[in-house]
């Protein structure tokens, strides 16, 4: 029954007829996009910290109210753990930039290795 009605219906249209989409961005806009992208990473990171504070407050046996989250005092241990998490996130996010460096460094390491094996 369900299959019949699905077959009878066309998938919804996801593009609009008429004028084509205007061209918005120009090459120089890329730099501003990167500035926005990095600012957005900051928001993601702050959100991740807020979730972590929820967990910390819960571990202390309290309810994660707005007041409890604001009153929570970050411990050095938790701060260090968050910092490690942020560095790991940045390493993942920036891979497209760092792969050129990592490849160059590992190629050199490879040369050294082949020299050793020769």
């Amino acid at each position: 029954m369900q299959e019949t009605s699905k077959a009878a219906r066309k998938p919804r249209q996801r593009w609009a007829k008429g004028q084509s989409r205007p061209r918005y961005l120009q090459p120089d806009d890329l730099d501003k996009m990167m500035i926005m992208f990095v600012a957005l990473l900051s928001e993601v990171s702050a959100l991740r910290d807020r979730i972590d504070t929820h967990e910390a407050v819960a571990e202390l046996g309290a309810d994660a109210t707005t007041a409890a989250i604001e009153a929570y005092e970050l411990t050095p241990e938790r701060h260090a753990r968050r910092e490690a998490g942020r560095q790991a996130m940045l390493t993942r996010v920036l891979r497209a930039i760092t792969e050129e460096r990592d490849e160059a460094v590992s190629e050199t390491a490879g040369d050294t290795l082949s020299e050793l094996l020769a």
């Binding site: 900051s42 990171s45 702050a46 970050l74 968050r82």
Partner: peptide, 9 residues
Amino acid sequence: HDEAAREDF
């Protein structure tokens, strides 16, 4: 809380 989190980032 969130200001500190953004500063930490």
